[in-house]
Structures are given as structure tokens and as C-alpha cells.
Amino acid sequence: MTRRRFAPLLPMAAVLICAPAPATGQSDFEGIWTSASVVPLERPAHLKGKEFYTKEEAAENAKRVLGMTSWERLGSQAPEHYNMSQYGLDLSQVKVAATLRTSLIVGPDGRVPPLTPEAQKRSAERAARNRGHQFDGPENRPLQERCIIYSTEGPPMQPSAYNSNLQIVQGTGYVAIVQEMIHSTRIIPTDGRPHLPPDICQWLGDSRGHWEGHTLVVDTTNFTDKAPFRGSTASLHLVERFTRVDDDTIIYEFTADDLATWTRPWTAQVTLARIDGPLFEFACHEGNLGIANTLKGARAAEKQ
């Protein structure tokens, strides 16, 4: 339970070294990891064209971001019922992997590509449907508030505002990824089997893995259209690549492709840092007073 570890933010050499391989000959990803990051998904406007910081700039950025509360980082108002510092939820209290990246999205642009006209229309229609109905019933609330899936648990896995913890266990023919928040397990077969038939759609999609040298490559399809990832459709095709670069670091890269949503595929890279465990049980739904109270509040307000 010693998650509260201050990691020295040493810029990491971009040289990939061979990870120690277990008897199976596959890279060993076992352990508990955090995807916590001091770098945003999209590159800030003032860093346009600059994909990497210098070591000094990276250290300066890390210092600045670690000095912020989670809510300052997210640019949102702090809810009064969370004491972020008491529960170790601020970034300054967790281990954060070092990186020279200025955005998780790779490439010269560093931004999510423009939405296609079709996707813009879909997104506008979705917003219009929910406008004025945000408190009508549970299905109008966000998926994470309903304790169905958390927006950053993925796939693709992204750093969350807090609790970006996951555990990997490798059994014969499988790699399992357990997300602490709000608890899910993705078991990825690596035996070359085909994807599920297209009529079986799942919140986390359907993942198949294979090895390319020391890199685990995971191909995910069969997404549901009920959980759009930044506006995506059920035809989202995701490719993730996991590469161990030293004992305590995994480079996790994902490429999202959905021609119905983006004008081109795009790729982001997250550095996972090893942390001490254990993962805790996140029994979200079992303690979900929030959704009932939100709806009760809305009904009470209607009577006034």
C-alpha cells in the first residue's frame, strides 16, 4: 500500500532494451502498474510542432503539473466530498513515469484528428437528445456515474484523474489486465483464435493478442455503440502495443481507427510505471448512492 511514492522524474532514454523473458519466451508484464501522467492526451496549443521536451523542460513541466490538484489539472470545480490529498489522489502523491513527450498523442500534430462530418452530426444529435434530459433517468447519466464502465479504463487505457492503477497476470495462452477503477478484467487470448462473431458486442470489445518479438500486440474489435470513445462508433478498431523497456516501465501505445469518426487513424503513447500493490476492490455499484440521490434531487427540484 505504498503507492505514495515520489518517483524522481528522470527523462527516460528512448532506447528499447530487451525485457527479461519468462520460460515461455514471452516478455514479462506481470505486476501492478500506473498510467498516471503529467502529460495531456492532446498537445497544448503553445507547444504546436514540438513533440518532445528537453530534459530540463520535462522536469519543469512535471514540477508544475505535480503542484496542481487533480481538479486544477482537469480545469473543473473541486467537489466538496473528495479530499484528494487525504486519499492520495493528487498526482504529487503517486508514482508518475518520466517522459519527454509533450502530449500522449504522437506525431507532429499531437491532436485527435478532426471528426468526419458524419461524426460531427452524430455527436450533435447525441448532445441534442440529452439536452434538458440529463436528470430524467439513470440512462441519461454518464456510464461511470452508473458504475458500468469508467471512461478511461479502456481499451484504450488512458491516465485517469486519479487511481490509474492496473495489474497484469500472464497465464498459459492468456494475458489478463485488471483495472482497479471501477473494476474490470480483460482476458486476452494469445493463441491466434479469431474474434467473436460481429453480433456479440461488449463494453470492452473483444481482444486478441499476439507477440511481435518482445512486444505484445492486442487487436480489439466488437465494441458496443453505447460507449463511444471520443465519439467513436461500434466499428472502432483498436491496436495496442505493450513493450517492456526496463524492469519498472512499459511503453503502452494504442492506435485508434474508425473511418466513421476520424479522418485518419491516430496513435497515443502512455508510459506505465511499476507501483507497489495491492489493487483494492472497487465495488462501485454496491455503494452507488450518488445516482439515486442525483435523481431524487432532480425530482425534488421539479416540485419547487
Binding site: 433517468g137 467473436l196 435523481l295
Partner: peptide, 27 residues
């Protein structure tokens, strides 16, 4: 190719648990 599939049942119990708190038509 046996595999576990998703049985995320929370959405199947929302009407049971929160249905009475739903906005009534016309209000």
C-alpha cells in the same frame, strides 16, 4: 475458443433500483 463474455449486469437492474426515481412523463 471458449471465453468469458461480459455480464456487466448493472444496467439490467437500473429500472428495478432507480425506476421509481425516473422523471414522470409530462412533468
Amino acid at each position: 475458443h471458449a471465453q468469458l463474455l461480459e455480464f456487466k449486469c448493472v444496467e439490467f437492474v437500473e429500472e428495478l433500483m432507480y425506476g421509481p426515481l425516473r422523471k414522470k412523463p409530462g412533468k
